Amino acid sequence: MHSAKLFILLVASSFALPAAAQRAARSNYVVRGQLTNAPAGTWVYVTDYLTGQHVPLDSATTDSKGRFRIRGQVAAPGTYNLRVKGQDRTAGLALAPGSRLRVRGDAASLWSTGEVTGSAEAVSLATMNREHARILAHVDALAQRRQTTTDTATLRQIGQEWDTSFAALTAASLRVARQSSYVAPFVAASFLSGNGANVAFLDSATSRYAQQWPASPYTKQLLHYQAMRRATTIGQLAPEINLPTPDGRPLPLSSLRGKYVLVDFWASWCGPCRQENAVLVRTYQQFRPKGFEVYGVSADSKPEAWLAAIRQDGLLWPQVLDVPSATSVASTVYNIYAYPTSFLLDPQGRIIAKDFRGDALAQKLGELLP
């Protein structure tokens, strides 16, 4: 019996050892690190966040000194995350076949403390992450100060610091996005594509990324953003929208041809949108008899909030609901990154102007519909 058990163990080990060797052979990157506030047994993961959720790729646990080693495999250079179980914030990882990275930081705040070495790409990404964390911590402090004061001078100063902080945030991102690195498309898509002031840079950079890193999913995202921007420039026929109205029936945007139409992207939760609604109601009442219409597109996830806002603001024009998602019209067709956003169409459905505030729309319509 003893001999039989020994034989079974020997046979099992003869399969287990080659399997372990095969896993090691398949690994093409190694991430070693030491974390504070990470007692023995703390799980550390390398994750992929491309879909908007952390998908674990490989993992390891820390020893009594907070040390860990993760082996894994990536098919191509890419940007991933190092995540500690139970923590929302992560440290960015620039990984490529052959990467040998070292990480140090506080397990409770990897985003702001994580230092990564081992490649130029890894260093630049981690440095940018720490700079972003520092700037956004200051922005949070400014937001708290703004809620506790009504002093005009103080509010003006806070506003100036706010603008300076976001300019610094953009500058930190641009430094990496300008590099000839596979991290550059990730930074451009994640941190620069939501700001209309970066359009000229993004158009130029996207063309370069398409040559250098054509397989990068972030290059593909940027090419899609570029196509959406070009499809919604002045002079283009506005892309079709066909979404449900409050009674559940779809209303095509094209059904309003023959009038000047303002396509108004708004939401019940958007303070500036609600303020603009009061002005838009006056403009609508003045110019509707002359051939003006509004097509409201709401980015509300709660229909009841949408309907309540329509009633409260007295919105008299056609409304459709574009529930926020990865497939919404706002995000996949019109490249909306801020609310409110509006497009004025001529009677043929072509875009002739964008983004009116205050009485600017009434002035424009006064020229078009005297």
Rank of each mutant, 00 (worst) to 15 (best):
R100Q: 14
Q87R: 12
W111H: 10
T327L: 08
R71Y: 13
Q144I: 14
G349M: 02
R100F: 10
A362E: 10
Q363Y: 10
A308D: 11
V187K: 00
D359F: 06
L243I: 09
V116R: 01
Y80G: 05
V294G: 04
Y295P: 00
G159T: 12
G92F: 08
G194Q: 04
P214C: 11
A24L: 14
A19W: 13
T61D: 02
T127F: 08
T332P: 02
P318K: 07
F343P: 03
S298G: 04
F292H: 09
P347I: 08
D58V: 14
R230G: 11
D63R: 01
F201N: 13
R102M: 09
A76S: 14
F186C: 08
S255P: 02
A338H: 06
V281W: 04
A24Y: 12
S301C: 04
R350Y: 06
L361M: 07
R357E: 08
T47V: 14
Q285G: 11
D355E: 04
G314N: 07
P185K: 05
Y334D: 00
K290L: 12
Q348P: 04
Q286M: 13
S207G: 09
L237Q: 06
T206N: 08
P77I: 03
R249D: 04
P318E: 08
F166H: 10
I241G: 02
V279M: 06
Q34L: 07
G66Y: 05
D106A: 07
V183A: 09
Y80W: 08
L365H: 05
D355R: 01
L361R: 02
A126Q: 00
F343N: 01
I8K: 11
R130Y: 03
V320F: 03
Q285D: 15
F191H: 12
E276S: 07
A143S: 14
A215C: 11
Y45Q: 01
I310H: 03
L95N: 02
S109P: 02
S254R: 05
K5P: 06
S342N: 15
Q226E: 10
V297P: 00
T245V: 10
A200I: 13
A326M: 10
T36W: 05
Q73K: 15
A210S: 14
I8P: 02
S216V: 09
S99K: 04
A12S: 12
Y49H: 13
Q87N: 05
P18N: 11
G349C: 08
A177I: 14
H224L: 10
D163G: 13
L243E: 02
Y337A: 11
I352P: 11
T341Y: 00
A167M: 09
R71L: 15
V279H: 13
E367V: 11
G114Y: 01
T62Y: 05
D264H: 03
V74Q: 03
